[in-house]
Design a binder for these strands. Structure first.
Lengths: 350, 350
DNA sequence: AAAGTCAGCGCAATCGATTGCACACAGCGG
DNA sequence: CCGCTGTGTGCAATCGATTGCGCTGACTTT
């Protein structure tokens, strides 16, 4: 096939449609908007013309005129670490995308490199009028982007918990404290008395919540809250490995572990195996997210299903509402979680 | 903080800048474009005005005028299955995004639900003038989207191999045939004589290539190419499970397995364990992608590193080139792979 | 000194929509 | 038969940029 034969895209504008239909461009525009002032007859005529010409409105022109874009921005966390490889992201994107698509919005994503680049991208989105609103897929302390959006009063929603002005920022989150408490409680119910916690950086608010839930479950059960049982590590880079090794060379190593992310669990299980512990025989592990792989790994993980897809759906809906109604009050959506019991946890034998 | 105190975004336009700088809007525009016809002095004056006013060009207006958008569309595969949870996607997005960001392009992603919705989204992107070019993150046979883009002569690149007109479509791929041959060869070198293959649907071209490489390695080594050693399954849904069970109830079950995706390997390893086979003692497994988790799983996987990030980078670069130079000839970029030897493969003991 | 050159900038059309307002025409009551 | 109300459309300004072309004035050239 000769490439010269391929059709060049030639713009068919509202004027062409108008001409063919024998009306004014403004009428065509009103037909597109399904304005009630246009007679049904005219509408039909115009619609036929649009179809015949294969007309598609030019979004740029449209957006310029109405000073909006039908697009929402999605900001991923800074990709300096491996965190981005977490299936959490495609999954939540899918949720966001499904609603967006339904409402005829498009997705603008920023995969930001460093935090600065991220900030730049956000500014480009906002100032350049590229998006109507923004969804933040992370929540970290003292986040510049949050500050910026908040101060500019630009519509945005956070997936996770905002680090400030909780009441004035719309966000979608799980009840991580409770989820973590329940998960820890589950281990306690299984007879575990020595339970450790592995989470990411305390900069990330989700870590804080999950740690808090863990601690509160221990307290409720009258178990000691030992600092040496808590590890903070981002995805088990070398430091994390050492921390785990230390944890298990304590005089009383834990028999149960609450871990803030399924992916980290994988790594921990692997490490433990090398240290000659096996899961769940020697040690029980419970974590968070319930992504697809938690189900197919060995052993399948007991984990909190936080309904990632649903979080995306809500975030998307909230944002679009906020965009449409400028004064929509801030909302807090707590997506229910449930524990998926699998084989990584086990009754302790004594 | 009272929300009324927060600053409303008020557009500062090119005219405002012009007024402040005491020049015409056209001059400001030329300063933005760094046009050589404007004196350095004027440029400085204008730039100062821009800074003072906090000016950011309105992309919609700009795009309307120059009939372009500084955005590229990314189309994910249809999300009807779990495939989207593959870390492959965030990773390649990261690659694409890094170049895009550098070149000041934005990313428009479509997470398409069904294939139809996907197609719709693409049409919206193209006809609505939302993007300058499109990257397809999949390659399936008889793909409507590919046909559409090809016929419209709209700039696009495929990650993977196009199902048609290979010479006229720019694509970024690995040499999957060779990679698979090498991987299979590795198992053969380790003494394996009975090697199975597990891949996804043959609709996906990558499966076809990897299967072909596997077969050719067998032939080269003078080993039989047995149909009952080949399984096609999408991410181990129930059918896949049965297939694997059958595979291992053959009179001569394989001692080695080439698997088209690390994530599938995980599932297979888990299944095998339930069937009382252990990896790599009883059976060696080698697969593809080398995502982060292949390194932390147990056992760590011998896998082909296909350099996902790099593929994204190339795809992005190629597309942007193509967008800038309409007649850029089609290119084929083969990203080198290398085998990452880990513990899921092992010399056979006899 | 007249004419030509060119650097530096502005005018105004243009991109493809939206929308407030004006206008035409029909049907109606008085 | 005259004005009035309303319905259905069109005119033209507007959104915020880009860009071809033309104008001005300083500097060369002959």
């Amino acid at each position: 096939m000769n490439s010269y034969l391929r059709v060049r895209i030639v713009a068919v504008t509202i004027k062409d449609v108008a001409k063919l239909a024998g009306v004014a461009p403004s009428t065509v525009s009103r037909v597109i908007a399904d304005n009630s002032r246009i007679s049904l007859e005219t509408k039909k005529k115009v619609r036929k013309a649009m179809k015949d010409l294969g007309y598609h409105p030019n979004v740029n022109a449209r957006n310029l005129a109405i000073r909006s874009t039908q697009a929402i921005g999605v900001v991923m966390p800074s990709s300096t670490d491996k965190a981005l490889q977490n299936p959490f992201f495609p999954e939540i994107l899918r949720g966001i995308g499904s609603v967006a698509h339904e409402m005829e919005y498009s997705l603008y994503v920023s995969t930001g490199g460093t935090e600065e680049e991220q900030f730049e991208e956000v500014k480009r989105m906002v100032f350049g009028n590229r998006v109507d609103g923004i969804i933040l897929l992370y929540s970290r302390a003292n986040d510049e982007v949050t500050n910026f959006l908040f101060e500019k009063n630009f519509p945005f929603v956070i997936v996770g918990k905002p680090y400030r002005d909780e009441n004035q920022i719309t966000y979608v989150d799980n009840d991580n404290v409770r989820a973590s408490r329940e998960l820890t409680q589950h281990l306690i119910d299984l007879g575990h008395q020595h339970i450790g916690f592995i989470g990411g950086s305390t900069e990330r608010l989700v870590t804080v919540d999950r740690m808090q839930g863990y601690v509160s479950a221990l307290k409720e059960a009258g178990l000691p809250d030992r600092d040496e049982y808590k590890i903070q590590t981002e995805f088990l880079e070398s430091g994390g490995r050492k921390a785990v090794e230390e944890l298990f060379s304590l005089d009383q190593p834990p028999t149960g572990l609450v871990i803030a992310d399924d992916l980290v669990s994988l790594g921990v299980i692997n490490m433990l195996e090398q240290l000659n512990f096996s899961v769940p025989e020697d040690i029980s592990i419970a974590s968070f997210n319930n992504v697809y792989l938690s189900e197919i790994t060995r052993p399948p993980l007991t984990t909190v299903d936080i309904q990632i897809y649903l979080m995306g759906v809500h975030a998307s809906k909230c944002l679009i509402e906020k965009v449409k109604i400028k004064d929509e009050p801030a909302k807090r959506i707590i997506v229910p979680h449930y524990i998926k019991y699998r084989q990584s946890t086990k009754k302790i034998e004594d």
